[in-house]
Amino acid sequence: MMRIDKTMTGVALALALMLGGGVAMAAGTDAKAADPKAAEAAKVIEHAEMARKRAASVDGEWRDTAKFIKKARALAKEGKYDAAIKLAKKAKRQGELGYEQAVSQEKLRIPSYFQSYYSD
């Protein structure tokens, strides 16, 4: 009797775990699809990547921008959308700033501290 009881309990537990797991998983998937933040995170990350590429196209990419985007992607995967969005926004801003920095110097300007050494 005792033995059967134990086995039964074990089976019941296993069943409950499987069911519970299944439910939780389904809920997780639903939450992901339904969470408007998931879509927002994907969008912001995409924009950050575009900004990074634009900066790179004028040799103006900063050191950590790609790292931030990579990390934002990982955060979004874990469902940490707020953190992902925050980081992706930072990366996007870096891309924009790096682009501006490069484009604003399109024309070579010899700095004032060196100018005078060209005379005579």
């Binding site: 930072k90 801003r93 870096q94 700033l97 920095q101 700095p111 004032s112 501290y113």
Partner: peptide, 13 residues
């Protein structure tokens, strides 16, 4: 000073 060697702490975040 456009030729400053100082980091642009705010503008470049």
């Amino acid at each position: 000073n456009p030729d400053t060697a100082m980091v642009l702490f705010g503008r470049y975040q």
